[in-house]
Simulated assay, not measured.
Amino acid sequence: MFEINHRVGIDASPAKIYSALTTDDGLALWWTNDISGAGDVGSTIKFRFNGAGPDFVVTELIPNKAVRWQHSGHVPESWMGTEILFQLQVDGQQTFVRFTHSNWQESTDFMAHYSTKWAVFLISLKDAVETNQGRPFPNDIQIDHS
C-alpha cells in the first residue's frame, strides 16, 4: 500500500481548522465550492468538480484533533478503498495539520498528480483559515495544462 503525506503549519486554533474540515461551508472555502453532506460520523460528503467527484464517509471525528474519511463509490477509481486523515497538533502559536491519503494500491502518475494537488489544497486550507481567502476549485492553482 502507498500513501500521500503532507504537513502544514497554520496560524489558527485547532477549533477553527476543525470547522474548515467538518462543515460544508468550511470545506467549500478551500477544496471545491460544490460540497454537500458534511456532518457527524456516518455522514457522506459529496465533493464535486464540474459535476463529478469523490464521495467520502466520515468515519472518525475527534473534536479539534482528528478527522477521518473513507472513500465511498467508484469515482475516481484509483481512490477506491483509500482513506483520508487530518490530524491537528498545536505547537507554539500554530497548529500543524498532518494530512495522509492512504491505502493506494499502486504508485502511479495519477497518485503523483494528487499528491501535488493535495499540497495545493492544503495551502488553500491554510489561506482560507488564516485570511478567509482560500482557492477552492475551480479557482485553485493548476499544476498542468490538461
Rank of each mutant, 00 (worst) to 15 (best):
S72E: 12
S78Q: 15
R98H: 10
W79C: 01
F86L: 05
A52C: 06
M80D: 02
P63C: 03
I123W: 05
N64I: 07
V75R: 11
K126A: 08
Q87G: 08
I123F: 08
H113D: 13
V41W: 11
Q94W: 03
F121C: 00
Q94N: 02
V75Y: 15
E60M: 10
V120R: 04
Q89W: 01
F86Y: 07
E60C: 07
G81A: 05
I45V: 02
W69C: 00
G73W: 02
A119P: 10
Q93L: 15
V90T: 06
T59Y: 02
S43H: 13
S124D: 06
V97H: 09
P54Q: 06
T59F: 00
S78K: 15
N50F: 08
H74D: 09
P76V: 03
V90A: 05
L122Y: 15
F96Q: 06
G73N: 01
L122H: 15
Q89K: 04
Q89P: 03
T82S: 15
A128Y: 15
G51L: 10
F96I: 04
Y114A: 14
S124F: 02
I45C: 04
Y114R: 13
H101T: 01
D109I: 07
A112W: 11
Q70G: 01
D127V: 06
R98C: 08
L85P: 07
H74L: 06
T116E: 14
N103K: 07
T44E: 04
P54D: 08
A112I: 14
L85Q: 10
D109F: 07
F99Y: 09
L88M: 05
D91A: 10
A119R: 14
Q70C: 02
A112Y: 14
A112M: 14
L125V: 04
